Amino acid sequence: MSTIEQQVMLAADALIDAFGRHDRDAYFAAFAPQASFVFHHVAQELPSRDAYERLWRTWEHEDGFAVLGCESRNRAVQCVNDDVAIFTHSVCSKVSTGAGFQTLDERETIVFARTGRRWLAVHEHLSPAAVEPAQAGAGTC
């Protein structure tokens, strides 16, 4: 694994760890201010970190949203150049809301860009995991 791949994996690990601990400040610090977000469960693209953070706070206040854990698997880094890399993985998240507990099995792409010495996420795309016919209805990661 190249030095860039290792650095991006470390940046991804920090982001995923903060998300899994519901550490809002550390999680959002892993994104550049101009980062954009596309989530399958949100009707519109979120054009900035600030827009996503406002939505996150709404989820917390109105829905009782909390992340209880997060597991990353099938991880890969693709280097575009010395300053841009794409991280992909399968992600299993445990969350709670006022409606109860939920396990989310999803695929995620995060584009990282080098900003000085740091790698920050500049785009995140989340989609539901593909379901194999034999696993349909299983509901767990």
Rank of each mutant, 00 (worst) to 15 (best):
Val8His: 06
Ala11Lys: 03
Ala12Ile: 07
Asp13Ser: 15
Ile16Val: 06
Ile16Leu: 02
Asp17Pro: 00
Arg21Lys: 15
His22Cys: 14
His22Leu: 01
Arg24Tyr: 03
Phe28Glu: 01
Ala32Ile: 03
Gln34His: 15
Gln34Asn: 12
Ala35Gln: 00
Ser36Tyr: 05
Phe39Cys: 02
His41Gln: 13
Leu46Pro: 01
Pro47Arg: 08
Pro47Cys: 01
Ala51Met: 03
Tyr52Glu: 13
Glu53Met: 05
Glu53Asn: 09
Leu55Phe: 13
Trp56Met: 05
Trp56Val: 10
Arg57Trp: 05
Thr58Asp: 13
Trp59Glu: 10
His61Tyr: 08
Glu62Ile: 00
Gly64Met: 05
Phe65Thr: 02
Ala66Pro: 01
Ala66Asn: 09
Leu68Trp: 00
Cys70Gly: 10
Glu71Phe: 15
Arg75Cys: 04
Cys79Ser: 14
Asp82Ser: 06
Asp83Tyr: 04
Ala85Tyr: 03
His89Lys: 11
Ser90Arg: 11
Val95Gln: 10
Val95Ser: 06
Ser96Ile: 13
Gly98Met: 09
Thr103Met: 11
Thr103Gly: 00
Asp105Gln: 07
Glu108Pro: 00
Thr109Asn: 00
Ile110Met: 10
Arg117Asp: 15
Arg118Ala: 04
Trp119Cys: 10
Leu120Val: 09
Val122Trp: 03
His125Thr: 14
His125Arg: 11
His125Ile: 14
Pro128Val: 14
Ala129Glu: 13
Ala130Phe: 08
Val131Lys: 08
Gln135Met: 14
Ala138Tyr: 12
Gly139Gln: 12
Cys141Val: 07
